[in-house]
């Protein structure tokens, strides 16, 4: 139980808004010491942890490309493209992207889209451009809101789409865990099939929230709404 103090440290550190890097590192060291690891073992653990989790940082490879494109007017071109499609509001665009994301994830193509691959270079600039066209200049708060909703359409789509695909880690985890703990024989296909109603609910609920974003933006901006 004592080793769980590390979790409390994280909560306290974040609540006090201390630098998250320090909070996580210190709580890691404290937890390891309470767990009875010697200093060398702690360093070893940090080292192997870093080495085996490098994949989370792969996305930086795409940053130079995105930076270069933004330098040459990606956002401006996105807004021009959106300008031609007058019926496409921020909410409708994101709801369409949610459908694409969920659909491709359900087919097992879960790495085709993502925050680094599609949201940052394509979806967020287009969503912002659509919002600016409809509501005029946005406040910082509104800009952050549109970006956050763009990211959410990706995350929700992936989370509720991937379980429909059979050969995904989470399904295999569920089957192997339930099989070994409760001595049952779960059919992976059944889990995938019953992920469909959840996925539909997720689409309806989050799609509605995305469409509602248009109203929120209209309410919080000064400019008179331009009818679509």
């Amino acid at each position: 139980m004592v080793v769980l103090i590390g979790v409390a440290l994280v909560v306290i550190g974040f609540a006090l808004r201390l630098n998250p890097m320090l909070v996580v590192t210190v709580s890691g060291i404290v937890t390891a010491l309470l767990g009875g690891l010697n200093p060398l073992a702690i360093l070893d653990t940090f080292g192997t942890g870093f080495a085996t989790n490098r994949s989370v940082t792969i996305y930086v490879i795409t940053l130079p490309v995105i930076g270069l494109l933004e330098r040459y007017g990606l956002l401006q071109q996105a807004s021009r493209l959106i300008g031609r499609l007058r019926a496409l509001t921020t909410g409708r665009l994101l709801a369409a992207y949610l459908l694409i994301r969920q659909g491709t994830a359900a087919l097992g193509l879960k790495d085709m889209c993502g925050p680094a691959q599609t949201v940052r270079p394509l979806i967020a600039p287009m969503a912002l451009a659509a919002a600016i066209r409809r509501h005029g200049e946005l406040s910082d708060r509104q800009i952050e809101r549109v970006k956050a909703y763009s990211a959410s359409s990706d995350t929700v789509g992936l989370f509720f789409g991937e379980d429909i695909f059979l050969a995904i880690g989470s399904i295999l985890l569920i089957t192997s865990f339930v099989d070994s703990t409760y001595h049952l024989k779960l059919d992976a296909l059944q889990i995938a099939v019953w992920a469909i109603p959840t996925a539909v609910c997720a689409y309806v609920i989050h799609g509605a929230r995305l469409l509602w974003l248009d109203r929120t933006l209209a309410r919080t901006s000064d400019k008179q709404e331009v009818p679509a």
Partner: peptide
């Protein structure tokens, strides 16, 4: 901003090509 608009005027749709290649390359 002005430089970006000028650049976008020349490059137009071609700007999306590298951006679209990121997801397709995965």
């Amino acid at each position: 901003q002005a430089e970006r608009i000028t650049a976008a005027n020349t490059l137009r749709g071609r700007l999306f090509v590298p951006a679209l290649m990121i997801p397709l390359g995965r």
